[in-house]
Design a protein around this nucleic acid. Structure first.
Length: 466
RNA sequence: GGUCCCAUCGUCUAGAGGCCCAGGACAUUGCCCUCUCACGGCAAAAACGCGGGUUCGAAUCCCGCUGGGACUACCA
């Protein structure tokens, strides 16, 4: 039975990189009919917060990455780490070290200055007596010679010389285990079969393998996936823009779009770009994960989001968009009318936030007129076209789209101008700009009264200007 | 500095020795559609980092170089 896990440390929100790691683990487990476990690595007491735990959980839920077991918290498993630390101590595979962080730091600096390796010199390894007045850490007795090989199904066989690895601290002076130790105990206790994680952990892996061996644990399968980079090819971080998963939700991205984007970042399936969740589960495999780091490309995410917006049924989309409109102060009363609005905006918007921007035309009556648009279409200060439209609309009952178009064309013929001129003048009257959803959509949604109001307002604007 | 990883269009990638004077997608440009903007359709431009090998033949294998990244904590 395949068992994978996602093990974030709660020191911030769920970010893009973590989300992709979680997704890969989740997909692999689902593909194999296995289990996906969530574990919170909160042994860094200083930086871990409950708010971060909740933020991560929210992010996972929004992406639809449900877990089968957990969340487990490392801080609630202290006795397990103590047990194995003691075991190593008793078996002579670990020892107390009384060096202070300050001493260690000094020695490291000194070694670096002298051009030597800044590794721990193992001076406490054979200490017979405790050092009075100091709280020791526990260090792992790493082998001096030989090599440790990481068998990684993405990177291949990676060989590390043991002389490069020093005696790492496995338990801090306050009794809290360090990452490299806790992660091993946890993965073994939770029967994790496949460890899929960022390749920033590849260098840690030989140390962990040494601990597995010292404790006679069976090794899991390792798969180190390449990092996600920003546009400048350095590790993706805040300065590259939004990195929080939930920030994308707030910006009006659909979870399906983000997940689809993420799965294709570092993984491929021939020429395929669009995957439903089920297709992903069915097709995901570790073999097709690439070896090189990938640059996060917001443009492509935007394209995918637009794709999923177009693909989402309008009724469903309207429910998602509602919050965004209400947040902007536009109250949604009639469901069917709102769906009409959403429908008209659907092919024009790439995010839900854009719906509210372009959609303002349906809600605002007292807008400003765009200067460039006015200069282009009302330069001659002639309101006759708008007046004709107004008269035509005043004398008609509810138009259908065909009749509306005939009217516009008729006025164009009558005034001997292009249809587009009439349309654009009307558009500016209705929206203040030369860009908007379809004219008929607008008048149909806002109704006769508001249409006439906006026409008169535009006529006043033009004539006042004259 | 040391260790480790990586290297195909601007970006995500296909490519597992001949099917590749390198395919798809995003972005870009042009054309068509059209009441504007979009959508949609069509088309174009755009890459195997460099140098050595191996081989009848290399984007694909090997070595070196260069470049990028990660790690180097009583962080994870």
């Amino acid at each position: 039975m395949v068992r994978t896990r996602f093990a974030p440390s709660p020191t911030g929100y769920l970010h893009i990189g973590g989300a992709r790691t979680a997704l890969f683990n989740w997909l692999y487990a689902r593909n194999k009919g296995g289990k996906f476990i969530l574990r919170i690595e909160d042994t860094d007491l200083e930086r871990s917060t409950e708010a971060s735990v909740n933020a991560i959980l929210d992010g996972m839920k929004w992406l639809g990455l449900d877990w089968d077991e957990g969340p487990f918290f490392q801080t609630q498993r202290m006795q397990r780490y103590q047990y194995f630390a003691n075991k190593l101590l008793e078996e002579g595979k670990a020892y107390y070290c009384y060096c202070t962080p300050e001493e260690l730091h000094e020695r490291r600096e000194k070694a670096l200055k002298e051009g030597k390796k800044p590794t721990y010199d193992r001076r406490c390894r054979n200490l017979k007596e405790p050092v009075a007045g100091r709280k020791p850490v526990i260090r792992f007795k790493a082998p001096h010679d030989g090599e440790t090989v990481v068998k990684d199904i993405i990177k291949g066989m990676v060989v590390f010389k043991n002389e490069e690895l020093d005696d790492l601290v496995i338990v801090r002076s306050d009794g809290v285990p360090t990452y490299n130790f806790a992660v091993v105990i946890d993965d073994v206790d939770m029967n994790i079969t496949h460890i899929i994680r960022g390749d920033d952990h590849l260098n840690n892996t030989p140390r962990q393998i040494q601990i597995y061996k010292a404790l006679n644990f069976e090794l899991p399968v390792f798969a180190h996936v390449p990092m996600i980079l920003g546009s400048d090819k350095t590790r993706l971080s805040k300065r590259h823009g939004a990195t929080s998963v939930m920030a994308y939700k707030e910006m009006g991205y659909l979870n399906k779009a983000l997940v689809n984007y993420l799965v294709r970042l570092g993984w491929s399936c021939g020429d395929e770009e669009i995957f439903s969740i089920n297709e992903m589960i069915q097709k995901f495999n570790i073999e097709n994960i690439g070896k090189s780091a990938a640059v996060f490309n917001p443009e492509k995410l935007l394209w995918l989001n637009a794709h999923y917006i177009k693909q989402t049924p309008t009724e469903e989309l309207a429910m998602l968009a509602k919050d965004f409109f209400e947040k902007k102060g536009y109250s949604i009363t009639e469901k069917s009318k709102f769906e009409r609005i959403v429908e008209s905006l659907k092919p024009r918007c790439r995010t839900l936030l854009e719906f509210t921007e372009m959609g303002s035309v349906y809600f605002e009556n007292e807008f400003d007129y765009d200067v460039a648009s006015v200069n282009k279409f009302f330069a001659d200060k002639d309101d006759s076209i708008l007046s004709l439209i107004k008269t035509a609309l005043e004398n008609t009952a509810l138009l259908d789209e065909k009749k509306f178009e005939d009217m516009v064309k008729g006025i164009a013929a009558q005034k001997n101008v292009k249809v587009v001129t009439v349309a654009q003048q009307l558009r500016i009257a209705l929206s203040g700009k030369t860009v908007s959803p379809g004219l008929f959509d607008i008048i149909d949604v806002i109704g006769k009264e508001k249409t006439l109001y906006r026409l008169q307002r535009a006529i006043d604007f033009i004539t006042k200007k004259a």
